[in-house]
Design a protein around this nucleic acid. Structure first.
Lengths: 346, 346
DNA sequence: TTTTATTACGAAACCGTTGGAGTGAAATTT
DNA sequence: AAATTTCACTCCAACGGTTTCGTAATAAAA
């Protein structure tokens, strides 16, 4: 950067002290009207703006928040970011985005970096690897050091901080219940490994709905997808058994779209033979054929709420600050992967 | 934040001066081995880290770059960001992401903010509104002030700075040419308003391919989609004319997926009756039915190249720095919205 | 023994801004 | 006329770190 105009330069120009200039620009009563006007005019002409770096150092804050997400190439996270960004900008905050790529190590690295005077607070969605390892000391230390922290979506029960979660269990219940009401009796779930908290929650909702609908649980219809292999291959088994499902609840969009493709390759028609519901509502659900009925997560609201809670903690001076957990409602967006006509619930 | 350990505190602890501590931690030869060891051990024990804010102020740089994109809920931009982020992190830089939401005003606001000592350089993809208005003074001023700037994807010809663009024209040619080779003679293009530079480039590639294939241009087959109305409605006209296209090139994925839906609603089968090719290769193309043959843009490479160029400019001390424009190759990802069998090119 | 080098550290400037404390001169009060 | 207040500034410390320069004490060279 070309050297910018500073208080010092203005002071030199007018032959006054730096503090005079500073005060003049702040319209202080200590400075005579005439001097103030001249200095202000000069500063305006040269587009004087206080140097942010200096202000940061002096105020010990940066008006920036950090967001650590597992991946950015993921519609849900981008909607959350949109929500965060909007509100943050309105409140005069900048947003620094870091990607953990689902890696524990990178999550820790990012947090260390952000914590070192770069941001005033951090919003994080925990990396899968961290969830798998169960190592949470980096969060504890961060909180211990007084850095405001909000977790969203993938949160950790035992860490005490503000949290924002989608009503995963409720959404999964909604979806499974819809399938039951539509007459499905053999309902499969396609979910993540159990250490992924959201996958777990959604499975619970699924199980609860089965129970409520008096359907018994069939282990063959519960598919835990392993990241290391092809999703297609792992889904084949669902259609090679005797027990072909007539309804499928997938805990994310990709699984839903993929299972539709696999089902189609086995000659099944959706929704006539098999009905499918996904989770997380984005473009895939909208543009797949048939379009996919999905549990919508309201990522934007989650992002806004997350920032709101973060700001609340940043601004709080209480030593006995009370952490909150916000539950964001989910709802069902009905499209064409489920049947139009359905039996009424009793 | 809880007050962190500083040089001053260490100095007090050992009864030495701050500079001694600073030098000791930098392993300076000016400090005796014994003192160095004691100070280093102490610092390590207390996890001393130099305060970033102080370093920023002293060095007049932040080791942070800013990225301004029109929207983050857009697969292409997220792949670019992934590329930027990866390389930036490797080089010790942080990434601050700002969204212009396609608004000129927000673009300017973001740039002003970033320029004010927040980042060492800026990567931008120009907002539609800015392209429409044709007002570029904010870029000129930024460059004039010596802030390194790289434009990607949506770039502005007349602004002198580093640029990274996809070979839009080449990709469009590739796509159109593929349709021609597949035997299509009535090829439509679905594109953006003309002020969107990438849309324009792609149209040129389309026209060039038609010319090369000795097909004449039919105005009825050129659809400029207007953002303000429903895309579906605007596409109807294509199938209400006498001249129903047998091939469609859409300048983005949404248009491609949408036109397939509209075509299907008119009873046409894809790819048998009409072949479709999109632009930008992401999940929609992959999961649509049929999956969509697309021109792939290599967003990651674009991001990496953009950061590379930015760093090059940041590190350069030349006053006669030479700006470059990097052209990132596009290629065709063939899927099921085009026919498998095709005539060989002469 | 005097001069010069070396060692090991401290003082101070600097980055840019802020704000409380101090100050000399003029204006006002006593 | 003396004391006090007001005005309009300047000075200085602080934020936390880096770096140049200075210097006292000791060691080596002349």
């Amino acid at each position: 950067m070309k050297q910018k105009i500073t208080l010092k330069k203005i002071a030199k120009e007018f032959g006054v002290s730096i503090s005079t200039v500073s005060k003049a620009l702040k319209d202080s009563h200590e400075i005579s009207l005439e001097v103030k006007e001249r200095i202000q005019a000069f500063a305006k002409y040269y587009h004087y703006k206080p140097n942010n770096l200096a202000l940061n150092l002096r105020n010990q804050k940066t008006k920036t928040i950090g967001v650590i997400i597992p991946e950015i190439v993921h519609h849900f996270f981008t909607t959350v970011i949109t929500g965060i960004e909007k509100l943050a900008n309105d409140k005069g905050y900048n947003v620094m985005i870091c990607l953990s790529n689902e890696s524990y190590e990178k999550e820790v690295l990012n947090m260390d970096m952000l914590a070192n005077g770069v941001v005033d607070g951090i919003i994080v969605s925990v990396a899968k690897e961290t969830e798998e390892k169960g190592t949470y000391d980096h969060f504890r230390e961060l909180i211990h050091n007084g850095m405001p922290l909000v977790m969203f979506d993938r949160v950790i029960e035992e860490i005490k901080c503000n949290k924002v979660i989608a009503d995963d269990k409720g959404g999964a219940f909604l979806a499974t219940d819809k399938l039951i009401n539509n007459g499905c009796t053999k309902i499969a779930i396609i979910t993540t490994p159990d250490y992924v908290t959201v996958g777990c929650e959604r499975k619970e909702g699924y199980l609860k709905a089965l129970e409520a609908g008096n359907l018994k649980i069939n282990k063959d219809l519960i598919i835990n997808i392993d990241d290391k292999q092809s999703v297609e291959d792992q889904l084949q088994i669902l259609f090679l058994n005797e027990n072909i499902p007539d309804g499928i609840f997938a805990v994310n969009e990709i699984y839903a779209a993929t299972v539709m493709k696999v089902a189609a390759s086995f000659g099944y028609h959706i929704p006539d033979d098999i009905e499918v519901i996904g989770f997380t509502d984005s473009l895939i659900s909208e543009f797949a054929t048939p379009s996919i009925t999905s549990v919508s997560q309201h990522g934007r609201s989650m992002g806004q709420k997350a920032f709101e809670l973060l700001l609340d903690e940043i601004d709080s001076e209480d030593s006995d600050y009370q952490y909150k957990t916000a539950l964001i409602q989910t709802d069902l967006k009905v499209r064409n992967s489920t049947k139009k006509t359905h039996l009424q619930k009793l």
